[in-house]
Design a protein around this nucleic acid. Structure first.
Lengths: 350, 350
DNA sequence: GTTAGCACTCACAATGGCTGAGTGCTAAAA
DNA sequence: TTTTAGCACTCAGCCATTGTGAGTGCTAAC
């Protein structure tokens, strides 16, 4: 990789040919097959020279002398940024996706779970969908009730229609009147407060409360403190099996690595998050190669796109597959689907 | 497999030796290695003769002429039923398990999820645990509240401390008074009713109700009818990765089959259920070989044991691994753990 | 009934030759 | 100067061959 000079037209053509060919066949591609498949009006020898240049610049690599070339991460990156023409979805495909979202979906989690399934199905890769985290969700309604003498359930409905329950065990019994007061208090003071700032919202006002109200506030704080923090952003992952069908994951060791990756959802969430920061040409951002530092997997790519609620970015959806994946199609799919999710969510949170 | 005559002592010894050896090494075991490892005071030739007999009777098989023998399903079965001496847990191990259950576990689902993790960890196999189904759970408390004009949440607490919420969308708005009446009504009539018979319990009494009460009852029925039936028994499965470490699942195709099996939890539940019917010598029942009819997997065994709540059998827990598994140890682990779960659950449901 | 001996079987690993796809380089053609 | 034809070379994958070792069945002797 000597310098990063611009590629001339022929180089671009050939890089594109190599990437396209490799994406569909998974075989290293040689000079002869390039001229045959793409009819460039050149001889294999010329193509070889160009390929040698591309290799020197770091866009292609050989798995060993005298095998064809395959794209490097940089090669894919160049292809994705400058060469790929996004393959628009057909009307039929768009209708299909839209149709999927007419189903009865009551809250954001249902929407996103469904989304990950849908993405897996139509992309033939693994589908990912992050559900809105506590930093983007607000209390719509909050209710407390006792379920036994020393046990209390707190029920929180957020602006995405999700219902979350948290059970808390108390040391002492609570009177029904106390609970009623507590419910009123919570609804008064936590309405539209962000889910990750419930305790903080009350603490801030604590000094303004007197007597009974103060007691109620302190009880509220105790409850919130005892409730298990299930703040972890949920990540829906569907269709993992598709990956095992790909030739690059045939080896047992590889398969094991993929399996382990799927167990570690936090890492995946991380990747999705970082994808946002990546340079991007189209709406979808694309992560190419090696995920995290602890996983041996170099051969993973992610195509992800943010979804919005009322123009505010909330989370990401996307697909995950082998590095050799049909980016041009997937970006369209992911983008379009993200748009649908945004619309659904905005409607839910009305 | 000519006849099922009893095995004489020497035959038993040798069958046991073969099973033990194969369980630990995963290699077919030959006559010479048997006499070396187990010091029977016999020559290899004699052992060969006995092994030939055992093969004829269907307890052993050869993978090809001139390889050692490995046990058949029948061989394992004989071993498990008559030969195996249950390997008691050490005090240390029992303490370890008991210690795990001192953790704060608030409801049955937490207990059983924890159990599946624990089993996976100490058995080095996949851990299974079925949570109590709707046919063994009773309503302890039931509450209804509106979360928006046309949306209602029904909250059901069962006798195992589990809280389940179901949201229902209605066509028309509901008045708060209606809901209050509804909550009272439900608590009056569904207390201690089995979770899978809620609608039925109300229908049965429908004719006894007049006027407003009848209206309330009908509203209740509508709600219960609209609520999604999440009756599916939950199956916790943990430590699936352990299986991929076993040599019998190294092949890619095998690995894929295991993966598919884990996606199909209903099949697993089925197996656990059937395990109960199996002949059993010790407390734990053992399923050997081939699961279901649609899976190619012949090489799976399950060791399972029921757990109880107040002496009533509720569900199963167990471990799943290759057919070649250390049954003598696993039965103890599973049995003991099942006992702990029973104790925990009985306490929870007091 | 048990054992020693022997010929036989068969999976598995190592070896070597062959093939085909692909390359780099050089010299000639455009 | 750029492109192409030609040629020698490389290397993975396939195939057949061979040797080895663990194990067997059978027979005859103990």
């Amino acid at each position: 990789m000597t310098d990063a000079r611009e590629l001339n037209e022929r180089e671009q053509q050939i890089l594109q040919a190599v990437v396209n060919s490799y994406i569909t066949t998974a075989d290293p591609v040689g000079s002869r097959s390039v001229v045959k498949r793409f009819e460039l009006g050149l001889s294999p020898a010329t193509v070889r020279n160009v390929m040698a240049d591309l290799e020197e610049m770091g866009y292609l690599q050989q798995i060993h002398t005298s095998s064809g070339r395959i794209p490097t991460d940089a090669g894919y990156r160049y292809y994705v940024n400058y060469l790929m023409h996004v393959q628009e979805l057909t009307l039929r495909e768009r209708n299909r996706i839209e149709h999927e979202f007419t189903e009865k979906l009551n809250d954001a989690d249902e929407v996103l779970q469904h989304t990950s399934q849908l993405l897996a199905l139509i992309s033939n890769q693994a589908g990912l969908a992050e559900s809105p985290g506590d930093d983007h969700a607000y209390v719509n309604r909050i209710e407390v009730m006792s379920v036994s003498t020393h046990r209390v359930v707190m029920l929180i409905v957020d602006n995405y229609g999700r219902v979350r329950t948290q059970t808390v065990n108390l040391d002492e019994a609570v009177h029904p009147e106390q609970l009623q007061a507590l419910s009123r208090f919570l609804n008064d003071h936590l309405y539209r407060v962000r889910l990750d700032g419930l305790a903080g919202a009350i603490e801030n006002q604590l000094k303004n409360f007197l007597d009974e109200r103060r007691k109620t506030a302190e009880l509220a704080l105790r409850l919130l403190g005892l409730a298990p923090q299930q703040t972890r952003k949920q990540l829906f992952l569907e269709g993992a099996g598709h990956l095992f069908a790909q030739p690059e994951f045939q080896g047992v060791d590889r398969a094991k690595e993929v399996f382990d990756l799927f167990e570690e959802r936090t890492v995946l969430t991380e990747v999705l998050r970082n994808a946002l920061a990546d340079e991007r040409r189209v709406n979808a951002s694309i992560h190419i190669g090696r995920i995290g530092d602890n996983f041996g997997l170099e051969d993973i790519s992610v195509v992800a796109s943010p979804y919005y609620c009322k123009d505010e970015p909330i989370g990401m959806i996307g697909v995950l597959g082998p590095r050799r994946m049909p980016y041009s199609r997937l970006t369209s799919i992911v983008d379009f689907t993200a748009g649908m999710v945004s619309r659904m969510l905005t409607r839910l949170a009305r």
